[in-house]
Simulated scan of single mutants.
Amino acid sequence: MKKAYNILFVTLQIIIMCAFFFPISLLKFRLPEAFNYGAYALFILGMLCVVIALYQLRHQLSPFPSPHKNSSLIDFGIFRYSRHPIYFGILLLFLSLSILFQEVYKLVLTAVLYLFFCWKSTFEENLLMARFPEYKNYRKKTPRF
């Protein structure tokens, strides 16, 4: 059952993220040029979060929410500020691109991705709490995203 959920989560994530880049322009919005600078800053921050988290995870990295058999709990570095810094970074990237493209469709998909990451991370955290007894305390003191 866990394997089916792993495949489901990865498949849905790929679909949502690929749909973001479909050339659909349903509704455009206009923002002042100054918002682009904020979007670039969000993009850089998102990239930093993803890269730092990937580096810290290294051999424990997996697209699946289930932890590796030989994994350990990482609660230091960027994981001290977010339990899911890769999801957080991806959300910042998608939000920044939504602002830069100025398309409602992309903003809606970013919101869908946020809800999806909430669902996926809830599943993942249940597995982490079962594997690591100390995860419950970590979860209390560290925000999800």
Rank of each mutant, 00 (worst) to 15 (best):
M1D: 06
K3C: 08
K3N: 15
A4Q: 11
Y5E: 10
I7E: 02
L8F: 15
T11S: 15
L12C: 13
L12S: 10
Q13K: 09
I14S: 06
I14A: 06
I14Y: 05
I15V: 15
I16R: 11
M17P: 00
M17S: 09
C18N: 05
A19Y: 00
F20W: 10
F21Q: 07
P23S: 08
P23N: 12
S25I: 12
L26V: 08
L26Y: 09
L27D: 01
K28N: 13
K28V: 07
R30H: 14
L31E: 11
E33W: 13
E33K: 13
F35M: 14
N36D: 11
G38C: 08
G38A: 09
A39V: 10
Y40V: 14
I44T: 07
G46I: 03
M47E: 01
M47S: 10
L48E: 00
V50A: 12
V51N: 02
I52W: 00
A53N: 06
L54N: 06
Y55K: 04
Y55W: 15
Y55F: 13
Y55V: 05
L57N: 01
R58Y: 03
P63Y: 10
P63W: 08
P65I: 05
K69Y: 12
S71I: 02
F76P: 00
G77K: 06
G77P: 08
R80V: 01
R80W: 01
Y81T: 05
Y81D: 01
S82E: 03
R83K: 11
Y87A: 05
F88T: 10
G89H: 03
G89Q: 06
I90V: 15
I90C: 08
I90W: 07
L91S: 04
L91D: 02
L93D: 10
L93Q: 13
L93N: 14
L95A: 14
L97Q: 11
L97R: 07
S98Q: 09
L100N: 02
F101V: 00
Q102V: 08
Q102P: 05
E103I: 05
V104F: 10
Y105N: 08
K106L: 06
V108D: 01
T110H: 03
L113N: 04
L113I: 05
L113V: 04
Y114P: 02
F116V: 03
F117T: 08
F117M: 14
F117A: 08
C118F: 13
W119R: 13
W119M: 14
K120M: 10
S121H: 03
F123P: 05
N126A: 13
N126V: 07
L127K: 11
L128F: 11
A130K: 11
R131L: 07
R131H: 10
F132G: 04
E134D: 12
E134N: 06
Y135H: 09
Y135I: 03
Y138C: 09
T142Y: 02
T142M: 03
F145A: 09
